[in-house]
Amino acid sequence: MVESMADVRSHLADVIDRASREEIPTIITRRGKQEAVVLDIQEYRRLREIAENVEEAWLNRLADEAESEGTVGAVSLEEMAALLRDRQG
């Protein structure tokens, strides 16, 4: 479902109910551009968990590769995660 910001403003409770009860997300547009999405909180949490697991697997793979290449210039997994968080922040 795609709706404009103006339409969503007029019936936000319905948009939230649709997301939570029917599990139908709503993409919100502003001036024709997709800006945000309203989705069920459980779906949001599920997607966040998937993203975190993928990031952790990627970091572990990088750490394994770095370890196999030697320790010169290597950083710990924790340092790598901090660098990525800083870059995203």
Score class of each variant (00 low, 15 high):
Ala74Arg: 15
Arg85Asn: 09
Arg87Leu: 10
Leu77Glu: 02
Asn53Asp: 10
Thr29Phe: 03
Glu65Asn: 09
Asp64Phe: 07
Tyr44Met: 00
Val72Ser: 14
Pro25Trp: 00
Thr29Glu: 13
Ile16Trp: 12
His11Tyr: 02
Ala66Ile: 01
Ala13Pro: 10
Asp17Ala: 07
Ala82Asn: 09
Val37His: 00
Leu83Ser: 04
Asp17Pro: 14
Leu12Phe: 08
Arg46Phe: 01
Glu49Leu: 10
Arg61Glu: 09
Arg45Thr: 04
Leu83Gly: 12
Leu47Pro: 00
Met1Thr: 09
Ser76Trp: 05
Arg31Val: 03
Ser76His: 01
Ile50Thr: 12
Ala57Cys: 11
Ala63Met: 13
Ile24Gln: 14
Ile41Leu: 13
Glu67Asp: 07
Glu49Lys: 15
Asn53Tyr: 11
Ala63Arg: 15
Val8Trp: 00
Glu69Thr: 06
Arg45Glu: 06
Arg45Tyr: 02
Ile27Cys: 12
Gly70Leu: 01
Asp7His: 07
Gln42Pro: 04
Ala36Cys: 00
Glu56Gly: 04
Ser68His: 06
Glu49Trp: 05
Arg48Gln: 05
Leu77Ser: 02
Thr26Asn: 03
Leu47Met: 03
Ala66Thr: 06
Ala74Trp: 01
Arg85Gln: 12
Val15Met: 01
Ser76Lys: 03
Glu69Cys: 05
Glu52Arg: 15
Gly73Met: 04
Ile27Phe: 06
Glu67Gln: 14
Leu12Ala: 10
Asn53Trp: 13
Leu62Lys: 13
Glu23Cys: 09
Ala66Trp: 00
Glu22Pro: 12
Lys33His: 05
Arg21Gly: 05
Ala57Ser: 12
Leu39Arg: 02
Glu56Tyr: 13
Asp17Asn: 12
Asp86Asn: 11
Val54Met: 12
Asn53Phe: 06
Gln34Ser: 08
Ile28Glu: 03
Leu77His: 07
Gly32Val: 07
Ile16Glu: 11
Ser4Phe: 03
Glu43Pro: 10
Gln42Glu: 12
Ala81Met: 09
Arg31Phe: 05
Asn53Ser: 08
Met80Lys: 10
Thr71Gly: 14
Val2His: 15
Ala6Met: 06
Gly32Ala: 03
Ser68Arg: 07
Met5Gln: 13
Glu3Gln: 14
Arg18Glu: 00
Glu69Pro: 14
Gly70Asp: 01
Asn60Tyr: 05
Glu3Gly: 03
Trp58Met: 12
Leu62Arg: 15
Glu55Pro: 13
Leu84Cys: 09
Glu43Lys: 11
Asn53Cys: 06
Glu22Ile: 08
Ile24Tyr: 09
Val75Trp: 09
Arg87Gly: 00
Ile24His: 13
Met80Tyr: 04
Gly89His: 13
Ser68Met: 11
Met80Trp: 05
Arg61Phe: 01
Gln34Glu: 08
Arg85Pro: 10
Ser10His: 12
Glu65Trp: 02
Leu84Arg: 15
Ala19Phe: 02
Leu83Cys: 05
Ile27Ser: 10
Ala51Lys: 15
Ala57Asp: 11
Arg30Gln: 12
Leu12Met: 13
Ser68Cys: 06
Glu78Ala: 04
Glu55Leu: 14
Ala51Tyr: 11
